[in-house]
Design a protein around this nucleic acid. Structure first.
Lengths: 132, 132
DNA sequence: GTGGCAACGATAATGATTGTCAAAAACGCA
DNA sequence: TGCGTTTTTGACAATCATTATCGTTGCCAC
């Protein structure tokens, strides 16, 4: 009645969302993904898309970004912990790793006695293409 | 008729918001601040609070944080660029400076040809008090 | 003092996300 | 393989912070 009762079921909808994310490049909003699924003829409810994305995000299989614009953006990305360098014009994204930053954050938090540390870091800029 | 036409006016409401932020500790939402102003007897509209906060944020006089919860949080804080270490239980916040992180972010962005770089970084943890 | 123009503010609109709950589907087990 | 239990689904409504609207107010320059 507590642990081991995960029981996550394999459903058509979950596969569809997961597969779509696997094919996509870049970040997309939940509503975007929902629209794409409908175009493909997959019948998936918007509610389910939200739920599935949340589940995948909790499981660490996708990344979530909260841009100032307001919409949450989701993306399937590489396994390890990393951050994003995002073009504020076209949205092109580069994954960057910064081990030094990770350890710095942990160290700073520890110095102040904070435990169970996590962090978010996003870098915004204008990419070479959009500069011209 | 282009620049120099800033013409930012000094109004009672703007002063009230600014003064309140000067006295407050920690982050507060726009609606929080609005409620506090009303308690004080200051008659300020919610719309104006939003507008003023946005103006102050644009001017760099206050910091904005966008926690997962959804509400934007504002805070008057020290001048220079810095980041926040936030307790995810009680919200207690510590300002931290990380020159190394700043230069790292700029360097990484430059390596990828990105210009006009900015970044956001927030560290979350559980503070010593909430650990007990 | 006075006029122009930005700021104000009550209200309505927006829009992404979440809650609800009956119906459908998936899995375990006999 | 068939059945019951339990999760998941999904259409729709609700939520709620933020933004737009637009007539009124009051600051500031002259």
């Amino acid at each position: 009645m507590s642990e081991s009762g995960a029981a996550v079921r394999n459903t058509r909808q979950r596969s569809a969302v997961s597969a779509l994310l696997g094919e996509m490049e870049g970040f997309h909003s939940a509503q975007d993904l929902h629209a794409m699924l409908r175009q493909r003829g997959e019948r998936v409810g918007l509610t389910t898309v939200y739920r599935t994305l949340q589940g995948l995000a909790d499981a660490g299989e996708i990344d979530v970004m909260r841009p100032p614009g307001g919409e949450h953006l989701y993306r399937r990305c590489s396994e390890g912990h990393h951050h994003h360098l995002v073009c504020r014009v076209c949205g092109r994204t580069v994954e960057v790793a910064g081990p030094a930053v990770e350890s710095w954050a942990d160290r700073v938090a520890a110095q102040h006695g904070y435990a169970d540390v996590s962090h978010t870091l996003e870098i915004f800029g204008t990419c070479p293409t959009c500069l011209r």
